[in-house]
Amino acid sequence: MYRYILNRLLLAVPTLIGAAALVFILMRLIPGDICVVRLGTGGSINAAAVANCHAQLGLDRSLLLQFFDFVVGFASGNFGTSMWSGKSVAHEIATRIPVSLEIAILATVVAVAIAIPLGTISALHQNSWLDHIVRTVAIAGIATPSFWLGIMSILIVLDVSHALFGAPWMPPIDYVSFWDDPLHNLSIVILPALTIGYRYSAVTMRMTRSAMLEVLREDYIRTARAKGLLEQLIVNRHALKNAMLPVVTLIGIEFAFLIGGLVVTEQVFNLNGIGRLFVLAVQNQDYTLTQALVMLTVAIFVVTNLAVDVLYAWLDPRIRFG
């Protein structure tokens, strides 16, 4: 088992280096650079100012040297400073992590809580009206653009509160950590968690349904049925447990993909999280920050995938570590 994990971690090294090279090249292919962005927003770009800025940020050094710095820095856990704000990348990311993480976890909870029961019910009553409705709702969740859902959900809250209490209400727009003021904090994160969670639950529910359907046709379930075991028992004891394998995989993988959902949702709800920071870093052409964020996402992706595989194997004794 340890050898397997070690092996997988070793395989992750080329992935990380590849991602590093990709982000490094991609960012430098974007015309202009952070100096042009910084000086350009005020409309006073002159060649001397740009050169000065390049020198200050070390952008006048050779590309090879810059790449070397980046990789060595990453390997030694030093991400450097953000070219935009001049603050350390670690600080920039650390201030944004809590809100994003909170929403990601809440969204996962929402998704799992909705998806697994509904997916199971849907599978047990395949092609009934109930199944059709559940599937329709699920697919609608996948089909609706998430920013649209976000904008609409705030509007609905505003309109409903206006109608009910005579004054429009919406969640606060200044973030406070959960430990400082739980209620304030939850009222901020609940809507974004629901909008992300809806899409997430839709994906998970479909997976639960098809995994359940597959398992229900397995021989051992038929045998159990033939033995006259209670349907309830069959579902809980045998089917659900085995159907959970692909679902767990999906939840894990989707969790790693959440960052993509956060990019748009954090904009809609004006949350100062990782997703928004990511868009800003790309738009400001802040190489160091973008590079660090990409490496972070890729690392999370690799670790989650590994965790899912280990969990998978642990849940299913048929799978051996090879």
Binding site: A19, M27, V264, T297, V298
Partner: peptide
């Protein structure tokens, strides 16, 4: 190579 592309955040690549 696929791992790298897979792990790379979608929307960020599109933005770039």
């Amino acid at each position: 190579v696929m791992d790298v592309l897979m792990a790379f955040p979608l929307i960020i690549m599109a933005l770039a």
